[in-house]
Computed example of a mutant assay.
Amino acid sequence: MLLVHGVVRESDAPAVGRVPPGRLQQPRAVVAGPLAAVVSDAPDGDLVGDDAVAHLDLLVALVVTVPVLPLPFGTVAPDEDAVRAEVLEPSADELAQRLAAVADLVELRLDLDFDTDASVAAVSRDDPDIARLAARARVPGASLADRMAVGEAVAARVADLQAELAATWTQELSGVAEQSRELHVDDQVSRTAYLVRRDRLDDADATVARLREAAAGSASVEYVGPMPVYSFLDDVVVGSQPAPRSRWGW
């Protein structure tokens, strides 16, 4: 049984053999015409979290130098003939067009992990409405409703402040990127994916360095990439009509 990790151009197949295997059995390329599938031998037991990490690490190592269409973790085929007959050959034209569409693009991801205490302190210091509510709640005999009103107002203002800061800090990076997409937002963490041209990676790196300086003391910054364009595959235009999604995850 083979794990099928992604698809590259046949001309880029040699790059697969140069990737350190890590947890995977040595990755290799299965070629069919102008395309090649990136495969490795599946482990004997069930797939676990470490296997998912190894799958991603392999694709990230490849996309540094060659275009890659990622497949969902856990995509399997019984053997190399099945990879050719079921994965590559039926969708060869579409795959080739999608690879051409993403050839000059990669994905970057940015996490902003806000320091809640710092946000609350900033709101309490700078917002006069919050200050008035807090003063009312401190009066002897203040009701539970007064105290709850302070908490609700602080939580709402903190959310607004963090959204404002995130928009300000990431404005320059959004200008570098072709597209951006919000992946996750909660009370503390904001995660965004950016679609960036390969020739603008240095610009993106420099922009994030400035963002880190601006966010110091208010939020920590995690910056990951380049990665395959996971978050933007549905936006890749192939021909004049949207292509149907196949059972392989496109």
Rank of each mutant, 00 (worst) to 15 (best):
T192V: 15
D126C: 07
G17M: 09
L110I: 08
A134E: 15
A177N: 07
S231A: 11
A82E: 06
V238W: 04
D235A: 12
P228M: 10
L211F: 06
G239I: 01
A122H: 11
V238G: 04
L56W: 05
G239L: 03
R147F: 01
L69S: 08
V8Y: 09
G45W: 02
V87E: 00
P244A: 03
D111W: 15
H5E: 10
M227V: 14
A219E: 05
V123T: 03
A103V: 11
H55P: 00
P43C: 08
R18Q: 15
L173S: 08
Y223E: 01
S218K: 13
A77P: 03
V185L: 13
T170N: 09
S91I: 09
L108M: 14
G175P: 07
S124Y: 03
S220K: 11
V4E: 08
T168F: 09
E10M: 12
Q241R: 13
Y223S: 02
D235S: 11
V64D: 14
P20K: 00
D234V: 07
A219D: 07
P140I: 06
V4N: 06
L233G: 05
R28I: 02
T75G: 03
D129W: 11
V39F: 04
E182Y: 07
V236M: 07
A36P: 02
D115T: 04
S246L: 09
T168S: 13
R136T: 12
W169H: 07
L165N: 05
V83R: 00
A32C: 08
A82S: 11
A32F: 00
D202Q: 15
H184I: 07
P70I: 08
A167C: 09
A134W: 09
V19L: 00
D113A: 14
V38C: 04
E182H: 10
A149P: 05
E107N: 11
L3N: 12
D234H: 10
A166S: 14
R136L: 13
L183Q: 14
W250K: 05
L88W: 00
F73W: 08
G33D: 10
S119R: 01
A134F: 08
Y230V: 10
D81T: 13
R200H: 14
L133P: 01
V176T: 10
L133C: 02
D79M: 10
R84W: 01
D79Y: 11
